[in-house]
Design a protein around this nucleic acid. Structure first.
Lengths: 235, 235
DNA sequence: ACCTGAACACCGTTCAAGT
DNA sequence: ACCTGAACACCGTTCAAGT
């Protein structure tokens, strides 16, 4: 499907880049060793000269995307120096989100990794540094990192929109389900009806919009700021 | 490995229950059709009389655990009727967490599902009902549901503890990594050092403890309550 | 109706062999 | 050093056949 690659020799980087292209185009389940090799104009077994196993390939793919985020965050830090801690973190998380939208398979893939992607450490060190610089205690900074969850990586847990698995998102199916269950689920259907009336968020299926993301983020930032100020007063 | 099942005929329920047992004992990657059939004392192809495909098996496994949560939440609701909305939701989420701890493969599996488990709707209808009953607007209740993320299901996004993939958790590996990178990651290592001094949370690897979960939960409940009261004043 | 055996297509991976 | 072909073990799944 994809055009055969030019005749430059294979490398770990080229393999990983091609893997990301496959996942972006057809989902993570389309990423097989044989398929990837085919895209690179090579036999499947050649990949094992640059990566020891499929698991290592997937680890590398995750690292590649994390590196994208690190680079984007680095570019942000280069500019806004006098920024408030909140606008700084906010900008970083939203930049990560822009990248994540292009790699919708990342949340699910990240969940299957056994080791922590090393690129994450640098990113989180910066986040903790920002918090400490803004007067947070080490303890509260620690709690904050956990409270953020996956927001620094640009996505939120999406219990109600599992499109990430790699397929078309089926908003209308969910809508049909809801209509059928209207009697049994009065509160949920009323809520959805009200929200659809407003027009902004049509279905529970794709509510992880920019707005929802920013709402949750601001809710957490507000709460953390309040806790920081309480602690300062107390001591 | 597991003892052969007694000679009662197979059923969808028995298959799903056995699947949960396999996943609990050896991780989700050990759950193959042939292995599961073997545990049930049957040939792999017999499973297809009760489930159309592996995907349906996994969907069923997810539904089984959601049903566990629904049952536990139902038991809670039967008792505490005069409860405050916060203690009510708090109790439900913590009950879900108790179940999730026994099925650590659930977060990752849930991420791979394409359809929303139907059992979730009843649970979330109750949550929305509790919020509406406490004076939340439909709009704020909607935002709240998204802000909660996976907390109602008893887990938080665990970027730094990917043990869920199904293997032993490797806290010491992470510790060694951190030690090696101490120079490059000053803020993170300082934070970890401070927190280890306290003794409660030894490593970033397993910080999704009860305490972290409750902290994040209370942070969100506080923020939502504040927004609700602001809106009431405004209107 | 429920279960089985053999077979198929497709994986990841090993290994000996090519250049 | 890098790539290849054949083969192996293991998947999910189909199908015709058993009872």
């Amino acid at each position: 499907m994809t055009a055969k690659a030019s005749r430059q020799p294979l490398s770990r980087e080229r393999v990983l880049a091609a893997a990301v292209v496959v996942a972006d185009a057809e989902g993570i389940q389309a990423l097989t060793m044989r398929r990837l090799a085919g895209d690179l104009g090579v036999e499947a077994m050649s990949l094992y000269h640059h990566l020891p196993a499929k698991e290592a390939l997937l680890d590398g793919v995750v690292e590649t995307v994390i590196a994208e985020i690190d680079a984007a965050v680095g570019r942000l830090s280069a500019n806004g120096d006098g920024e408030d801690w909140r606008t700084r973190l906010r900008g970083q998380f939203l930049a990560a989100r822009q990248i994540m939208v292009r790699h919708p398979w990342m949340p699910a893939l990240l969940g299957t990794r056994r080791a922590i992607p090393v690129g994450l450490y640098a990113y989180y060190d910066g986040i903790v540094g920002t918090l400490l610089g803004a007067g947070f205690s080490h303890h509260l900074a620690h709690r904050a990192v956990h409270a953020f969850g996956s927001l620094p990586l640009g996505f939120a847990q999406e219990v109600f929109s599992p499109a990430a698995a790699g397929g078309s998102m089926e908003a209308d199916v969910a809508e049909a389900d809801l209509a059928a269950m209207a009697g049994a689920l009065p509160h949920l259907t009323a809520m959805v009806a009200m929200e659809m009336h407003d027009g902004s968020d049509p279905t529970l299926g794709w509510c992880d919009s920019q707005l929802e993301f920013e709402f949750t983020l601001d809710l957490l930032l507000d709460g953390l700021e309040r806790l920081r100020d309480q602690n300062q007063v107390k001591s």
